[in-house]
């Protein structure tokens, strides 16, 4: 069964948790908007897929996770990394191909990972993550850690055999897994309303014997509540959940995409639906958080991103000695 959650209430989160959530979302936004500008200067190599607009998903889900838990991400992975606690400066250095990067410059934007944080990596293969999360959930279950696994994947990835097989496997093995389908309307230039044969990705959950939930992805509180239920169920041995998060990506598929296939939905989303604007409006209206504290976070985040870019640009590149290391543990 697929439920559409009504806009959730925010009372479960105390002020610190709200500030943390805001900081995470703001950090992701600032990171991505800065990359958008820096990419345009030609200094950033390779393919860069930005997560701006989708911050509430990574943040609302990862707010429930701790050191026992692991996540798998996608090619659009910066937001998931930041929400799971990967060091922002190391991420920036990685994107610039520097030795000081999260993966010593060997991975780049599409492969940022930090296993020590339970972050299994952004992923260049669409549909690459869900099977891995069946594995991390299996390990948590076998070892009795109480941990869960979360697979983030796109609407496009929801059509990949690996994803559908993983949904089935997770149910069959009753795994502590959460599948977060981030439906941003497009896979490259192709519309999800065309590529997903069901009305909703979450409708497919029924066929795999698990609950399916649809949430407004611009609403941090809606994501937070749905994810909270799913994580709790998984931790208690109740098995997997499929959550479909609906929103719009703010930038192109990758940087450089002219996006002529799109309508004008982005301007409208930015103006009316934006997760950061709505979060701020809500927590200040209810009086839970003082606007000045949010402003202070904005400034701190801007400084952090400035420093991250500056340090990344100045950092050394890997050298010939690094080319053939780290292929194996032993050989």
């Amino acid at each position: 069964m697929t439920d559409t959650l009504s806009t959730a209430v925010s009372h479960e989160l105390d002020e610190n948790a709200l500030l943390e959530a805001y900081r995470t979302m703001r950090t992701i936004r600032a990171f991505e908007e800065r990359l958008h500008d820096e990419f345009a200067t030609g200094e950033i190599p390779g393919f860069v897929h930005l997560y701006a607009g989708e911050e509430a998903s990574a943040t609302g889900v990862c707010a429930h996770l701790d050191g026992r838990d692991s996540i798998a991400s996608t090619h659009r992975g910066h937001g998931h990394c930041i929400a799971k606690g990967v060091d922002v400066k190391a991420m920036m250095a990685e994107i610039y191909g520097k030795k000081t990067g999260s993966c010593h410059g060997k991975g780049g934007s599409m492969h940022i990972a930090d296993l020590s944080k339970g972050m299994l990596g952004a992923n260049g293969i669409v549909g690459g993550g869900p099977p891995l999360i069946c594995g991390t959930a299996l390990a948590a279950k076998q070892r009795g850690t109480g941990g869960v696994g979360v697979a983030f994947f796109g609407d496009g990835a929801s059509n990949q055999g690996t994803t559908l097989e993983s949904l089935n496997l997770a149910s069959v093995w009753n795994l502590p897994a959460i599948f977060v389908a981030e439906n941003n309307g497009y896979a490259e230039a192709t519309s999800s309303s065309w590529s997903v044969a069901a009305d909703n990705i979450a409708d497919r959950a029924a066929g795999f014997g698990m609950p399916g939930v649809i949430v407004d992805g611009f609403d941090f509180f809606a994501v937070h509540e749905a994810a909270g239920e799913a994580v709790q169920r998984a931790r208690e041995g109740g098995g997997p959940t499929l959550i479909e998060v609906k929103f719009t990506r703010y930038f192109g598929h990758f940087e450089g995409d002219q996006q002529t296939y799109r309508a004008k939905e982005v301007a409208e989303a930015r103006a009316k639906l934006d997760c950061l604007k709505r979060f701020r409006a809500r927590v200040t209206e209810t009086g839970q958080v003082d606007a000045a504290r949010l402003d202070a976070i904005d400034t701190q985040v801007a400084d952090l991103i400035d420093a991250a870019v500056e340090e990344a640009k100045a950092a050394p590149k890997p050298t010939a000695a690094d080319l053939e290391t780290d292929v194996y543990v032993s050989y």
Partner: peptide, 20 residues
């Protein structure tokens, strides 16, 4: 292939991509 017809179902220009 993926986006070979430019991105099916999208609201903007037809044949926008011609494959990636």
């Amino acid at each position: 292939g993926e986006d070979n017809a430019g991105g099916a179902g999208s609201p903007g220009e037809d044949d926008a991509w011609g494959g990636v």
